[in-house]
């Protein structure tokens, strides 16, 4: 990331709402007057970058073990967030990364937190002011259950639909399937399990 881009990212995180109002002042490269009523025709150019922030529900689905025996998740619906950066290598294909977090409580009232950090590949199709996307991610997660910690590999696949409300901003919805392997080794290999969850949320993307 170029220094100017990094500075913009930092400013955007700190002053996102203010930036959205002052986009036409030139901080964002080509922001226009908001066009909430009609949307803004999207274009994606090579080298475009976006930063997305999503919040929503995190719905644990099921757990299976190495013998593929499936049981319920025993975990209550919770909340999730994700912060995504992506860089377009073509008119639709982008690479980037995501930092996310999901909070849930178990049926026994324990607190479960999963925080994945992953690399991302995405493709976006543009239909006027509508942007439809598919993405896959792979990385690692840090999990905390009460006072216990664990790290493991992580994978995620998702879809999104955005409405380009202005040149600098899109808003929309997204959903993603989380695959969370908990892999143990040695004497504890029988503890290996695979968690599965669904994330559904609202999202906003800022076009740098």
């Amino acid at each position: 990331m170029k220094p100017s881009t990094a500075a913009t990212v930092a400013l955007m995180l700190l002053f996102g709402p203010a930036l959205s109002l002052s986009a036409s002042d030139g901080i964002a490269t080509s922001a226009d007057t908001p066009a909430m009523a009609t949307g803004k025709a999207s274009t994606i150019e090579i080298g475009d970058q976006t930063i997305g922030l999503a919040i929503g529900l995190h719905l644990p689905l099921f757990i299976f073990d190495k013998d593929l025996t499936v049981t319920g998740a025993n975990t209550n619906p919770g909340a999730s967030f994700s912060l995504t950066y992506q860089y377009y290598l073509s008119h639709g294909f982008a690479l980037g990364g995501t930092f996310a977090g999901a909070f849930n409580t178990t049926i026994g009232d324990r607190n479960l937190f999963v925080a994945p950090l992953s690399l991302r590949a995405a493709y976006t199709w543009v239909f006027g002011s509508i942007e439809l996307g598919l993405d896959v991610e792979a990385g690692a997660y840090l999990m905390k259950l009460d006072s216990n910690f664990f790290m493991g590999p992580f994978a995620k696949a998702g879809a999104s639909a955005y409405w380009r409300v202005m040149n600098a901003w899109s808003i929309g919805i997204e959903t993603a399937y989380w695959f969370i392997p908990e892999i143990h080794t040695g004497d504890y290999i029988s503890f290996t399990r695979y968690g599965n969850a669904l994330e559904v949320g609202i999202a906003a993307a800022y076009h740098l």
């Binding site: 757990i63 049981t71 998740a73 025993n74 975990t75 178990t106 049926i107 026994g108 009232d109 324990r110 479960l112 840090l142 999990m143 259950l145 216990n148 910690f149 664990f150 790290m151 908990e182 143990h184 080794t185 040695g186 504890y188 029988s190 503890f191 399990r193 695979y194 968690g195």
Partner: peptide, 22 residues
């Protein structure tokens, strides 16, 4: 530090599977 704090001897999802509801 994160790796060092991880507990291979504790089955996270296993213990969750075994939980009974409060």
């Amino acid at each position: 530090a994160a790796l060092a704090s991880c507990d291979n001897t504790y089955g996270f999802y296993k213990t969750i599977q075994e939980e009974k509801a409060t």
